[in-house]
Structures are given as structure tokens and as C-alpha cells.
Design a protein around this nucleic acid. Sequence first.
DNA 1: AGCCAAGCTGCAGTCACTGCATAATGAATT
DNA 2: AATTCATTATGCAGTGACTGCAGCTTGGCT
Lengths: 214, 214
Amino acid sequence: MSRTDAPRARSSAPTSRGTATARRIESSAVALVIQHGYDATTVDMICADAGISQRTFFNHFATKDAAVIGTDVPRLDESRVRAFIAASGPNLLADAAELIALPGLDGAMDPQLMRQRMRAITSSAELMQRQLERFASIEAELAEVIEYRLARLSTPDESAAEVREQSRLTAHLLAGILRYSADALMSGDSASVPAIVAQTRDRLTALLPKLAGR
Amino acid sequence: MSRTDAPRARSSAPTSRGTATARRIESSAVALVIQHGYDATTVDMICADAGISQRTFFNHFATKDAAVIGTDVPRLDESRVRAFIAASGPNLLADAAELIALPGLDGAMDPQLMRQRMRAITSSAELMQRQLERFASIEAELAEVIEYRLARLSTPDESAAEVREQSRLTAHLLAGILRYSADALMSGDSASVPAIVAQTRDRLTALLPKLAGR
DNA sequence: AGCCAAGCTGCAGTCACTGCATAATGAATT
DNA sequence: AATTCATTATGCAGTGACTGCAGCTTGGCT
């Protein structure tokens, strides 16, 4: 139990995006992982199921987990970003938490596959881990967005650079919140994603004043 | 460039702790990684350098990165924990950040090796990543400690369970702060660890009131 | 018909890691 | 001193992820 192997850091990005072949591989991968678990699912099994060669698999996906998690870079939702920037309520952090709600992390795609994928990912701590890691790719973007709101709240003695750093720090705090939600999602026996997001938001609202020292 | 392979999730923990052999392996590993980088350093190279067989390597360390990072479980510093619990200032988060200052994460050990190890780890994003992951092992413990302070600040309508969840959330926020510091440490051209910790603390103190919405 | 780029494939190789079975060492027992 | 036993090291063969390379196929284009 527990074949291992396979780090990150792929060199050249594999080819296509929306190929039919790639979709077949993805759906085979997701299905098999749900059925057997991530570790027990070998690349060869996925290939057999999708009816392609191993070499082809790696022509489409750089790593085994990429086939399950998907390759589209997570992006912040445009409209939510606008709303966030425009808003000016006291709940900056809670507002921002909405920006990175788990569902928002998946690009628009086949909802059926997305649902399955969600199941596959949450079934394996390892995959969840990798999924969370991918979040790092939004952090820079997120920090930039946060900067808009934070700039308005800055005191005169704070330089622009300082505000930027505070924004980055905030983005990291949000990553922590995301991880907390992910934890809750995996350990909590049931609970839907929206429910957890809402719960976390409330919790955060109650918690922050305590942390900030009234 | 970039051999990969090697996931987490080892099954049975390898043997000894402070064997002479294990130390030799560690020091070879650290030295070679500093010299060639993590990816370019193969297990065989480390074995050759340490004068042992590959099988022996894996008898002592479950994974390649374990030999570089070390195997001792990070622990919270007893005295700092006491101080934290006893305190009751307004800066709960900033206070807690001291608990997880990077240097505190390494068990007491040969300072020479520790310094080298630090260099090796910060030289590779992959290793840094793994190092940060190990922090997760303290999170539960950390959350427990935080609970002491947080309980005093709870409102009457909050259940003990709610306080516990808030503590866990706080622990995750701290993990985010740790990651921010680690980022700063790796990107910042120089800057010592204590300097970064202090800076982060100040930044946090300035930031929190803004997030909590005064 | 002739050509070209894209996608698929096999093949051989590297590297991390595992199970198993076998030595070598030394300390504890008889 | 001979025996037993646990610990530690080692070889060996195998699995599984992943890579580079070279060759084949296919469909569209001229």
C-alpha cells in the first residue's frame, strides 16, 4: 500500500488543452481514483481504461495527479473581484474569503466531471494537498486585488511598499483560511462546500476582533 | 534537469534516531544538496558519499528529502508556550507567531549541521515546501495552546466546540503567516530569520485592525 | 499524388522506493 | 567457549512515475 514517487517541477508543458483524448484520460483518471483511491491507481490502469499508451498519457499530462486535478490554472472570478474591490465593508478578510471559495477554483467546465473530480480530490489527502498547492498560483493576483482595498485603509506613515507587503501577508492568511476550509471539508463527515464557506466566514467574523485585540 | 519522483506517505517508519550512520547520511545529503541542488542530487550519490548501500539509506530515511530535512518532529518550545498562555495582551496572533518562529522548528541539534541544513532547505523550493508541510504536525498542538487564550475571549453565546474551531482556524492563519515569512526568507536577498520574524510581527500588528474592521 | 504538421506509439533508460532473504556484528545467555 | 539473538547492513529483483528519442499514422493542403 502506497506506491509513491512523482514530485512536482515538470519542465516543458505538455501539449493540448481540450483534446478529446485529454478529456478521455481525465475522466478515466477521475473514475479510477474514486474507485480505487489515488495510490492504488496506476498510470497504466488509466491508460488501459482510456485506451491509449502511457507515452500518450504523458504527452497530455505532466504528472499523474494532473490528470485527476486538471490542468487549467485556477483564476479569480472577474465579477467577484469587481464586487470585492468596490465594497468597503469592515469585513475585508471575510469578503476576500469568498474570492477563493473552493468551487471558484475550478475553471468553467463540464459540471458533471467537476463534481466527480471534487469527489476524487477530497478522497485523497495527497491530491487535496496538491490542489491547495495550486492555489499558490493565484496568490500574487489575489494580493494585487487586496491591495486596492488595503490602500484605502493605510495610515499616512505607511509606504506603498509596506501596503503591498501587507497585501501579500493577507493573501497568505487567506491561503490559511482556504486550508482550514479544506480540512473541514475532508474531516467533516458531510457538509456541502457552500455551507462550509459560509460557516468559515461567520467564524472568521467572530474571531478577528479577538485577534486584533478588540 | 529535474528528476522527479517520490511522494509522501511512507508506511512503516524507518529504524533508528541518532545512529552514527544516520548522521553520516544526513551530513552527506545536506552537503551534496548545497553543492548540486536537490534535484541533481541522487540517492546513489548520497550513498556513495556516505559510504553505505542504497538499501541502508532507506533503512534510515523513508524518503530522499527526509535525509536533508531531518526526521525529528518539530515541537513547540515549552517555555514559550507557557509565556504565551500566561500572557493576555491584545496581540494574540502576533504573540503566537513567536511560537512558530522558523528556528524553533528545529529540534536541538548540532548547530553546525542545522545551519547547513537551513541553507540546503532554503536553496530549494521543493524542500522548503516539504519543510512547511511538516509544520502541519504541530497545528493540532498549536490549536490546543491557542484555545487557552481564546477561551478567555469567548462570548457567552459561543460553545466550547466553537471556541475549539476558532482555535483551529487561528492555527491555520498562523500557518499562513509562517508561509509568508518563509517566502520573505527565500525571496528577500538577505535578511536574517529573527529580522524577518520581527518584521512580520510588526506588519501583522498594523494589518490586523484593518482586517477586523476596527 | 506529394507534403507536412500533429498526435500516437514503442522502447529503453533513470530514479525513488519496496520486499525479501541473507550476512555480519556484538552483546547476552548458558 | 559455544550458542543464541537482536540489530544493522547489504544485494537483488521488482514496481511505478517519468523522460528522450525515433518512427509511424493521419488528415488537411497544395
